[in-house]
């Protein structure tokens, strides 16, 4: 891919960024702006599309084309753009409320259609812009302004949701882990199909430290399972290593000695590519505190994109029938009759 000589600052818009101090969105914005020049896409071909919410202000801060739309519908606007202009690099920015509550339907359908989009779902497990109500990913029992006695909603997991919708690329990363975030952004951009990235993001005002143990490098080795394709599912620091076994789709934790061969101990080896999503579902079921939270690419498989099939149908129809593609022929098709003077 031909590199375009652009720098990070070329992707910084002239708008003042207005997130709260300490918001995880700052880090995500910075890392996206850093990755952009490395993707080899001309800036004028990049579009950021969002809905409503704190995360959805994102396009306003990117010096690309951008469309800050209405609540929950960003995937649908992006679908129209990408189906109309497949050469564009279209990025959707959404949150747990925008993407999984009001926009859950559109997220489902964009994933199953597999347009070549990148969807960044900032998950802070709370409504920030409306000042602190529980969200569809909030933990049961969460006390919020709208749930003074604790939330009684069972939460949805973005990864399991995406897998269930037939997503071809599903990953999880962390707002403050620049290296991991940038790696995942590049992988998502390179993936031909819809890439759903759940970004664990901290809301310091309404749900501070929700992801603290995986954000903090000191506790991460015990609380996170870093997924690497072809590598065993091992986590924990030296002296406290553990692995994940998956038997009949049910995961369990097995303690490992430092010199154990994890595979010999029955620890599963990570594979992003199985056609069946069962293994990825088993990974998605790993939740704190019983299991480490997996970070990385859960699934990456290929399937024709929606827009490529649209283009193919148009090309086929033109090859077969282009001579008929004029208004005169259309208006005179079928039975006509002439009234003489």
């Amino acid at each position: 891919m031909a590199k375009v000589a652009l720098k990070t600052k070329d992707f910084v818009s002239n708008q003042d960024v207005r997130w709260c101090p300490g918001c995880g969105d700052y880090s995500i914005l910075k890392n996206v702006q850093r990755v952009m020049p490395e993707l080899g896409v001309p800036r004028e071909n990049v579009v950021f599309v969002s809905g409503i919410g704190c995360s959805s202000r994102f396009p306003l801060y990117m010096n690309t084309f951008g469309f800050h739309t209405i609540h929950g519908r960003a995937p649908a606007f992006a679908t129209g753009m990408k189906a109309a202009r497949p050469e564009l690099s279209v990025w959707v920015v959404t949150g747990d409320g925008d993407g999984l509550s009001i926009g859950g339907n559109h997220l489902l359908h964009v994933l199953r259609r597999n347009l070549d989009l990148q969807i960044l779902l900032f998950n802070n497990r709370v409504y920030g812009l409306t000042k602190g109500q529980y969200s569809p990913t909030s933990r049961p029992g969460m006390h919020s302004k709208s749930t003074p006695q604790g939330s009684i909603d069972y939460p949805v997991d973005p990864i399991a949701f995406a897998l269930g919708a037939g997503a071809t690329f599903v990953a999880r990363t962390i707002d403050v882990d620049a290296n991991h975030l940038q790696t995942i952004l590049k992988r998502a951009s390179a993936h031909p199909g819809t890439a759903l990235i759940e970004i664990l993001q901290n809301c310091p005002v309404y749900n501070d430290n929700e992801w603290g143990e995986v954000q903090d490098r000191k506790t991460r080795s015990d609380s996170a399972l870093v997924l690497e394709n072809g590598e065993p599912l091992v986590f924990g620091a030296k002296g406290g290593k553990r692995g994940i076994r998956i038997k009949d789709g049910v995961p369990s934790v097995v303690a490992l000695a430092d010199d154990d061969d994890p595979q010999a101990r029955g620890v599963a080896t990570h594979n992003e590519h199985p056609h069946s999503p069962s293994y990825a579902f088993a990974l998605a079921s790993l939740q704190r505190p019983d299991f480490p939270l997996p970070i990385g690419v859960f699934r990456a498989v290929e399937r024709p994109t929606y827009e490529s099939m649209v283009e193919q149908q148009i090309a086929d129809a033109k090859a077969k029938n282009e001579s008929a593609a004029n208004i005169e022929t259309l208006l005179h098709s079928g039975d006509t009759w002439t009234v003489e003077v």
Partner: peptide
Amino acid sequence: RTFQAEDEIAAVAAAIGASFAG
């Protein structure tokens, strides 16, 4: 290009998205 959307809202949103793209 015809797009049978998942609902009425997505139908108009996609049309507006296509308009944004020209």
